[in-house]
Amino acid sequence: MTTVETRTTLRSLVFDSDDDTALIEQMTSNLPRRGLTEGTRGARLPRTALRLLESRILATAVSLLDEDPGPLFAKGLGALQEVMDEARATRADPGRRVVATIQDPYRIPVRRSAYVALLVENQESARVDFDLEVVFAMGHTSISLQHGAVDFIDCDAGVLTVSLSLAGATPPLLSRKADFPVHWEVRPPIRIPLPEQGPEERVRSRPQRRPYGT
Score class of each variant (00 low, 15 high):
Glu196Tyr: 06
Ala178Thr: 15
Pro181Asp: 03
Glu196His: 05
Lys177Ala: 15
Pro199Gly: 08
Val182Ile: 02
Gln197Tyr: 08
Trp184His: 15
Arg191Val: 05
Ile192Phe: 00
Lys177Ser: 15
Gln197Asp: 13
Arg176His: 02
Pro188Gln: 08
Leu194Trp: 02
Glu185Pro: 05
Trp184Val: 13
Pro181His: 00
Ile192His: 00
Thr170His: 08
Asp179His: 13
Pro195Leu: 07
Pro193Asp: 15
Ile190Ala: 10
Glu196Leu: 06
Pro171Glu: 07
Thr170Gln: 08
Glu185Tyr: 12
Ile192Tyr: 00
Ile192Glu: 02
Pro195Gln: 11
Val186Phe: 06
Pro172Val: 00
Lys177Phe: 13
Pro189Thr: 05
Lys177Trp: 14
Pro181Phe: 03
Ser175Arg: 03
Ala178Pro: 12
Arg187Leu: 11
Phe180Tyr: 06
Ser175Tyr: 01
Pro171Ser: 05
Gln197Cys: 07
Ser175Phe: 04
Asp179Glu: 14
Pro172Ser: 02
Leu174Asp: 05
Leu174Gln: 01
Leu173Lys: 07
Val186Thr: 11
Thr170Ser: 12
Leu174His: 04
Pro189Gln: 00
Pro181Val: 02
Pro171Gln: 09
Pro172Trp: 03
Asp179Ala: 15
Leu173Ala: 04
Asp179Leu: 13
Gly198Pro: 10
Trp184Met: 15
Ile190Val: 12
Glu185Lys: 13
Pro199Ile: 07
Trp184Leu: 15
Leu174Arg: 04
Ser175Trp: 04
Pro193Gly: 13
Pro188Tyr: 11
Pro199Thr: 01
Gly198Phe: 09
Pro199Phe: 08
Pro193Trp: 11
Leu173Asn: 02
Arg191Gln: 09
Pro195Asp: 13
Pro172Met: 00
Ile190Gly: 09
Leu194Lys: 04
Glu185Phe: 10
Leu194Val: 09
